[in-house]
Amino acid sequence: MLREITLGQYYPVDSLIHRLDPRTKLFGTLVFLVSLFLSRNIWGYLLATAVLTAVIRMSQVPFSYMIKGLKAVVILLLISVSFNLFLTSGEVLARFWIFSVTREGVRMAGFMAVRLIYLILGSTIMTLTTTPNALTDGLEKSLGLLHKIGVPVHEISMMMSIALRFIPILVEETDKIMKAQMARGADFESGNLIQRVKAMVPLLVPLFISAFRRATDLAMAMEARCYRGGEGRTKMKPLHYSGRDHVAYGLMLTYLSGIVILRYL
């Protein structure tokens, strides 16, 4: 059930993508996301598809595993697609009741669906191939400049890494509480919408309590080990770029220029 959310769960295999510097992967993801919004025609998306497929292949993460993350956003996807489908004005293709489907609407909805799916796949690749720790290290380093203008970069990245770290724990906790309530006869799978929402109470209350308990415990444990934030803190394993990272940056720039050229085709 809930175990199917893959966002923020590292998949441990040793692939070329796994070995890249986290900063490279962060930048690569950013480039990919930007490219999705730059593309205006089918050629841009074809190029993005090719690149995405290649990266997924190289990451050695089973595609079926990656797809699981998509299930969680199906609703969001449907809503945005139908909004685009029905609410875009233009040349009318079909009409029923107060809705009309236009040529532009179909086009927009299609692009929107592809865009959202690729957006999620792109960021899922990053989180599946990078440990949460490496990810926040990379983020902290990449955003280091912002620190100079007073942005608490270290604190933000620490919060992010804790949040990421807690996703699997909370998923596990949810699973446990769900089972405990099912052992007491709770039913999470049948009934109408109102019954189902009501059935969530025995799950959510203990879950919130445990989340708060974990948060205070963690804060206490960090303070007990004299944690006091980023000032003067050094890394045990500082990040270093290697040859493959330079190659990756080169490929990313090539890809981005390709997308820009295709945009004006």
Binding site: I177, A180, R184, G185, A186, P202, V205, P206, S210
Partner: peptide
């Protein structure tokens, strides 16, 4: 379950115990 107190959710003890038979 282990640490079964983590499954408690009702406002009072009596209602919590009633959850199972109610189901």
């Amino acid at each position: 379950f282990q640490y079964p107190e983590h499954q408690l959710f009702e406002a009072d003890v009596f209602s919590d115990v009633c959850f199972g038979p109610k189901n």
